[in-house]
Design a protein around this nucleic acid. Structure first.
Length: 431
RNA sequence: GGAAGCGUGGCCGAGUGGUUGAAGGCAGCGGUCUUGAAAACCGCCAGGGGUUUACGCCCCUCGUGAGUUCGAAUCUCACCGCUUCCGCCA
């Protein structure tokens, strides 16, 4: 959520910032509501002040045993107008809130301006794609050859965009998640956290999924008209840990790493990435979340991306790092780096991690604050990044480490998490 | 699922209709004392919002939302959550 003061005092900057994201924001509705709000709020508060002082008089008169009926009659006359004004004001504030909660974050000044992913800026490439002396197959064929990936079974169980993994591939998937968790907790100083996969509406609002992106979420009914939402990323429950809290400065930073499944309806992506595990309704992700003092968040973002990169490096997976342009960033982000891993079968880089500093945008929605060194309360900053998407990492390992005979070599760094297994053999050969 | 109790400021905890936005304690901040620290003592200290050049003035907030009343932390109802007991259960 943007600061309403910003919209009141510097609307041009807001309009320009949203424009750079490709969002045409017409401020006239907001400004009309705001003018109305000012008049209504002033009037309402006058009436409230009058009622309060008259009521106080009544208390004093009665305390002295004097007659208060005249004053009571006067204050009684205020009732209808006051009630009407309070109601109107509350409606108006709700409408302002609705406008405000639908506006995305303002990009940081260092974010490249652009309209689509074509304008993202490549910052670096790490590793070089392997030269194959055979035609590399994609992970679907490799997985089938290993007897480890079964999309037909998943269709039977659930439908499209799900996967069943077996034997060595399932083991590899588990090993990757464990490996990531261990690296981030042991070497990068993150605290492991386990969180609910079903969350309430307030949590989804806090991180910015609601109210605007409900169609991307799965939900289950709960009670009369309530519902749980399935998390689309553990960013939601983990970040919301600090919702409604006022923290002491020395409680920050908080660095969390969580491994959860993620659920996305993928509405609006019909026909995209229909083959394989790239785009699923359910996938696992190891997520890094940092709760930071405002002055530290930009350093923290660079550090966070580095932590995600380190996983790719240890696995020996070639990747590139992009700074997303204004037009390609997510709703809550002030700045985002994407990491894209090399997929030989697609002969291209594909997103495997997205690391963002949300600044105070989520904190304002969550009312999450920190008492700074000067004793002032301010909104803290939140960051999150994939470290990494486990399913896509599995795809990358299968494709980059495939052998001519159909086997897949386990990346050296991962062998301890595979119980010493160095190769996953195709079915027909010894497993 | 049934029964009972409870939800107050950063934390703990008093407060059952009227100058109570709220005693007291802890934490924090400033000071006295001390070579320094601790202890002791003194003072300050809820959050959000409106308005004002400013001093200030005003409004809202005691889990959330409705209601009763001239006036609600305090009374009523609903919802949410927590605790204990019973039932069920990985």
């Amino acid at each position: 959520m943007l600061d309403i003061q910003m919209l009141r005092t510097n609307m041009e900057a807001v309009v320009a910032a949203l424009q750079s994201r490709g969002m045409a924001f017409d401020p006239t509705e907001f400004q009309a509501l705001e003018a109305e709000r000012k008049a209504l709020q002033t009037r309402t508060q006058e009436l409230q002040a009058r009622r309060n002082s008259l009521s106080k008089q009544i208390g004093m008169l009665k305390g002295k045993g004097e007659d208060a009926s005249a004053v009571m009659a006067e204050v009684g006359g205020l009732g209808d107008e006051l009630k009407a004004n309070e109601q109107a004001l509350s409606n108006l504030l709700a409408r302002l809130e609705a406008v405000l909660s639908g506006l995305p974050n303002m990009p940081h000044e260092t974010v490249p301006v652009g309209t689509s992913e074509a304008d993202n800026v490549e910052i670096l490439r790490w590793g070089s794609p392997r030269e194959f002396d055979f035609t590399p197959r994609d992970h679907v064929d490799i997985g089938a050859g290993l007897g480890g990936l079964d999309f037909e079974a998943a269709v039977k169980l659930s439908g499209s965009r799900f996967a069943v993994m077996r034997s060595g591939v399932a083991r590899l998937h588990r090993a990757l998640a464990q490996f990531m968790l261990d690296v981030h907790t042991r070497e990068h100083g993150y605290t492991e956290i386990y969180v609910p996969y079903l969350v309430n509406e307030a949590s989804m609002f806090g991180t910015g999924q609601l109210p605007k992106f409900e169609e991307d979420l799965f939900s289950v009914p709960r009670g009369e008209d309530g519902r749980f939402y399935l998390i689309p990323t553990s960013e939601v429950p983990v970040t919301n840990m600090v919702r409604g809290q006022l923290l002491a400065a020395d409680e920050l930073p908080m660095k969390f790493v969580g491994h959860t499944p993620c659920f996305r309806s993928e509405a609006g992506s019909y026909g995209r990435d229909t083959r394989g595990m790239i785009r699923q309704h359910q996938f696992d992700k190891v997520e890094l979340v940092r709760i930071e003092r405002p002055e530290d968040s930009w350093t923290a973002l660079e550090e966070l991306v580095g932590h995600a990169e380190s996983i790719l490096q240890r696995l020996g997976l070639p990747y590139r790092k992009l700074a997303l342009c204004t037009g390609d960033m997510g709703f809550s982000a002030a700045k985002t780096y994407d990491l894209e891993v090399w997929l030989p079968a697609q002969d291209t880089y594909r997103e495997i991690s997205s690391c963002s500093n949300c600044g105070d945008f989520q904190a304002r929605r969550m009312q999450a604050r920190v008492r700074n060194a000067q004793g002032k309360n301010e909104f803290l900053h939140t960051l999150n990044g994939s470290g990494l998407a486990v399913g896509r990492t599995l795809v990358a390992v299968l494709e980059n480490y495939q052998q001519a005979d159909g086997a897949v070599v386990v990346p050296e760094a991962l062998i301890p998490w595979m119980g010493g297994v160095e190769r996953i053999e195709p079915v027909g050969k010894t497993a």
